[in-house]
Structures are given as C-alpha cells and as structure tokens.
Simulated assay, not measured.
Amino acid sequence: MDDKVRARYRKILFLTWFLTLDLIMFGAFVRLTDSGLGCPDWPGCYGNITPVGALQDIREAVKVMPDGPVTLPKAWIEMIHRYVGALLGLLIICISWMAWRYREKFGQSPVLAFVALIAVCVQGAFGAWTVTHKLMPAVVTGHLLGGMLLLGLMTWLAAREKVHQQVQLVSKRWQPWVAFGLVLLFIQIALGGWVSTNYAALACMDFPTCHGQWLPEMDMKNGFSIVRGLGELPGGEMISQSALTAIHWVHRNFAFLVFAYLVTLGVRLRSQSGLQGPSNLLLILLGAQLLTGLTTIFFQWPLVIAVLHNGGAAGLVLTLVTLLVRIGRASLPGLSVQSR
C-alpha cells in the first residue's frame, strides 16, 4: 500500500511539474498574442464561465475597437490559460495534502510542498492583478517571475523523487556557484520580461550594435521606472523610443554576462560524476537561447521563436535547480543515493 501511495504521489507530482512548464509556455503565448485582456474582467469573462456566454459583450467590444484587445479568439486564449492555472492549483493542493498526510511514510518534510502551494496562490493573485491593472508591466513581469519560481519549486519536488547516478561529495564546492548562476538567470528573466511587457523586443533591430551604435541614446530612468502603466511614462506621457532602447539594450548586454558565466559553469560541471546529464542540457539550452534571441531580432520577433525563447529560459531554470538538488544530495564514494 505504501508503494502504491508513493507511486500515485510521484505521478501527480510529475504531471504537475509538466503542466507548470506548459503553462509558462502558454503564458508567453497569451502575452505575445496580446490576449491578456481578451476577457477584461476576472476570474470569468464578462461575468461568464466561458467566452460562449460572453459573445454579445465581445461583439460589442469588437464594434467599438475592431483592432482592440478583446476578440473571441483572444478571449478563448485567455480563458484556457486561466482554466489550466486553476487545474494546476488543484493539483498542488493535492500534492500538499499528500505530502503532509504521508510525511512519515515518505520520510520527507511537507514544507516544500506547502511553499509551492503558497507560490501558486500568489500566482493566482498576480493573474488577477494583470487584468485589473490593465497589463501593468511591473505586474506582468512579476507574474512571469512567479511562474519561474513555481517551476523551480516543482522541479525541486520532482528531483527529490528520482534516483540518479551518485554525485561525489567533492562536487559540493560547486553549490554556491550554481546558486549564483540561478540568481543571475532570474535577473535576466526579469529583464526579458520587462522587454516583453513593454514591447521593446524590436527597439534595436541591428546586432551587435543598436541603432548602429554601441552606446545609443537611452533613457534609463524612465525605461526602468517601475510604477507606470503599459506604454506610458510615470507622468502619463507615451513611452519614448530612447526608454524602449534602454530596456532592450540592458537585456541584450546582460545576456552576454549570464551566457558566459553559465557556459563556463556547464563546461566545468561536465567532469563531475552524476552531473553530466544536466550540464550537457544546460549547454544545449544556452545555445538554443542564443539562437532564438538573435532570431527574434533578425526576423522581427516571430511568435513561435519568441515562445520558444521563453520556454528556453524555463528550461534553464529547471536545469539549474536539478543541478542544485543533485549536488545537495552528494555523498562519499560507496554510499548509495536515496530517492528520498
């Protein structure tokens, strides 16, 4: 019976992990198709459970603004994202209950599962604020970071359930280096989210220079002012090109630092027993991120590539968290690595 319960727990856990990754990708699709206000209220769509019941309201909105944020396809995209998010929340509630109910049988503290539960609740709040604050860049970027944090927590939970090749105790010295790499990555994801939510991806359409210059005219102060509406400066004026250039330029150039650090880290960790798999994946994902990042510039931000770029960032998060978990379970040669 204990084995069946543990097997059921693992199935739910890995399904939830996979769904979290998918939801991050779909969230990028929502953002990049301008569907975030496809249903301009929350949690329903004009007070209805589905866009079908809101057809009249949607048609009226389209009449007023034919090219506006509300259309039937965008409403469905937005609501599907909400449905999947609700399902994810229910699954994490189930995981938390099982982690607490069977904590002695599993031999694990349920604290991490409850942290994930708190994180998904906060994500739900940010999802609501995204709509009620009309896609305010700070809120949308916070929603993205929350999704990445939740993915990291689910990866941590899932990685604890897997048996892997033994990692020797000497690899412990790399733990702070991987943790620092994860911090750098989250900063870069925040910068990338700021680019996306401010629609600054095409602010510089040449590479490696920007507007033909290494240091173009930039308005850092207004570009990185946090409390302001979408497409606006703090004073309510339309955001300037120089502010958008600053947003893009910082994200692009900080990426070089993160890329160099993580490539060096990945190459060094490939020699460590038990870390070769995630280290190789780290290097592959970094190459893919470089390719998709450049492609968004040269091909003017195609939707599929932009979504893949967001997914690559999620892949880097789960890879670095996996490395941290494995290093944290390092042991002396000859000692077995337990799945708990």
Rank of each mutant, 00 (worst) to 15 (best):
V307K: 08
G142H: 08
A314E: 12
A28R: 06
Y102A: 10
S279R: 06
G193T: 11
C210S: 02
M79Y: 02
I305L: 04
L320Y: 13
L275G: 04
A243L: 04
R160M: 06
Q188S: 13
H164F: 09
L184W: 10
L21G: 12
E217T: 14
Q289T: 12
K221T: 14
V70G: 02
S196H: 05
F106Q: 15
A201V: 15
P73T: 00
Y46W: 15
L269F: 11
P176R: 12
V30A: 00
G142V: 06
Y9K: 07
F186Q: 03
H248N: 15
A75Y: 00
I327L: 15
L233M: 14
G193S: 06
L275Q: 07
L303V: 05
F299I: 02
P278N: 12
A113P: 02
Q241N: 11
V337W: 06
G152C: 03
I297Q: 01
G142A: 15
A28C: 10
F254Q: 00
Q188H: 14
A246L: 12
L13R: 00
L169R: 15
N222C: 00
W129H: 14
L149M: 07
V167P: 06
G147W: 10
M148D: 05
Q123C: 04
V52W: 12
T245N: 11
I80M: 10
D2I: 07
W194A: 09
L281I: 07
A159W: 08
L332E: 14
S240H: 06
F29Y: 11
V140M: 09
W42H: 03
L303M: 07
Q241T: 13
T322E: 01
V317F: 03
K74P: 05
Q272Y: 13
F180L: 13
F259N: 08
K4E: 14
G229S: 13
F26L: 13
P176M: 11
P69V: 04
G127D: 08
L91C: 09
L88P: 07
W129I: 14
A75C: 00
E161M: 04
V317T: 09
C204T: 04
A119Q: 07
N253Q: 04
L291V: 12
S273Y: 00
V140P: 11
A159L: 04
R173T: 12
L282A: 03
E104P: 03
A306K: 02
L72N: 03
Y199P: 05
V258W: 09
V267N: 03
V183S: 06
S171D: 10
I77L: 10
Q56G: 00
V140T: 10
P66M: 03
V64P: 01
V170Y: 03
P302H: 06
I226W: 14
A255N: 08
F126N: 02
C45K: 06
Q276L: 09
